[in-house]
Write a protein that binds this DNA or RNA. Structure first.
Lengths: 227, 227
DNA sequence: GTCTATAACTTGATAGAC
DNA sequence: GTCTATCAAGTTATAGAC
């Protein structure tokens, strides 16, 4: 309660300066957070006990309470970092694009970045998707603010695409956004790299949402791009 | 262990004959199952204790163990019934269609039936979607068989639609099916009847998956149907 | 078929030595 | 900053009376 909320997102382990390139193993508070994120993702929130986390860190529960005030404080931070990571990954990828990129390129880039953050060894992002529905309501309500900001970003992205490409005005971008994010996050439960790569998933989902399942009768704006 | 596995899906409460139209309140085993499904959906699997279920039923934990051998046995049955209900709802709706129906009608009917089963006061179906990721791995593995059967049904349905409507051969029906079911089930977390009706959701999702976001340049097979 | 009572265990959290 | 020891409460499950 007294502890200041530090910008823990990209904090380096204690004693690590910016110039040292080698990623040292996390310590103390950071190690606890990393371990909690991994266990939450693997076993769920309620099933993961503090003793469990402590044991994986090689410490006891007493030590954990020196860094965090409660289990809820840990999961709150894990959830927050999860959204921040995926959000930053998507924003950075889209920002790196040529500003004149067409809607297909923008959407594909954002979809692929989201999938990368979710499926590629990111305990925080996948823990967020998996345990959000398991944590107490009070924590969910506080976390909604963080999620909303990411959803708003997606909404603006879709609007930008809609203007650039002239989307069908009958489509509801709000519902589309929800369907899209649900389809993205759902992949966490069935994705396996040997069945389809992240690139394939991103390509397939983008084409599906832009063009649909039915065959396009010779279009003047379509089918020129194939990567 | 000794107890025979009855076809508990649509079983009527004891003492209820087929001709009595009034739905009597559930008793005994059925009441326990109904209550468990509701609490699992509301509070999650690990958070819902047997004392909790018993109290809501007006009995004690001792009584529960007369009807079920363990908590895992209860959740296994709740999960199974959840898939059976949604599966039967979708199959029945599609079967009631004119056999000559076009792909748009078939897909819309199946999507709407799935959403109805999931969102319209169905504790079992929504409990299944919500707690599947929370139950022990051993239970999940046993349950996969039930899920696979439903997913196979959807795959055949999409193939039938693809042949009827001539889908774009570049689309991957396997990935499409996964994206579609994820989009459907995800609605459980944000659906509110005052924002959009189930009919609107079904319409929007069907149009999106068939035609995509981009505008269709005058088609000969499209845009004739608007319900 | 429901109850009471309880065993055996795990949980989050705290107090205080070092 | 980490440890040991422990508390109070909650968990699943069982035994046996009625």
């Amino acid at each position: 309660m007294v502890k200041k909320q530090l910008s823990s997102q990209a904090r380096l382990p204690r004693g690590t300066s910016a110039k040292s390139a080698a990623p040292e193993p996390a310590e103390g508070r950071q190690l606890i957070l990393d371990t909690a994120a991994r266990l939450f993702r693997e076993e769920g929130y309620a099933t993961t006990s503090l003793r469990n986390i402590a044991a994986e860190c090689g410490v006891t529960t007493g030590s954990i309470y020196h860094h965090f005030g409660s289990k809820e404080e840990i999961v709150t931070e894990v959830l927050r970092i999860g959204v921040v990571r995926v959000s930053e990954e998507v924003r950075r990828s889209v920002m790196a694009l040529d500003p004149a990129s067409d809607a297909r390129t923008i959407l594909h880039t954002a979809v692929q970045a989201h999938l990368r953050a979710l499926l590629e060894l990111q305990d925080y992002t996948s823990a967020n998707v998996r345990i959000f529905g398991q944590v107490p309501l009070s924590i969910r309500e506080k976390h909604i603010i963080v999620r909303d900001s990411y959803e708003t970003y997606w909404h603006k992205l879709l609007q930008r695409c809609a203007e650039q490409a002239g989307f069908n005005p009958e489509r509801d971008l709000r519902l589309t956004r929800l369907f899209l994010i649900n389809a993205l996050n759902g992949s966490l439960e069935w994705y396996r790299p040997d069945i389809a790569s992240i690139q394939q998933l991103a390509h397939e989902l983008t084409e599906l949402f832009l063009d649909g399942l039915t065959r396009r009768p010779r279009s003047e704006t379509n089918s020129s791009k194939r990567k």
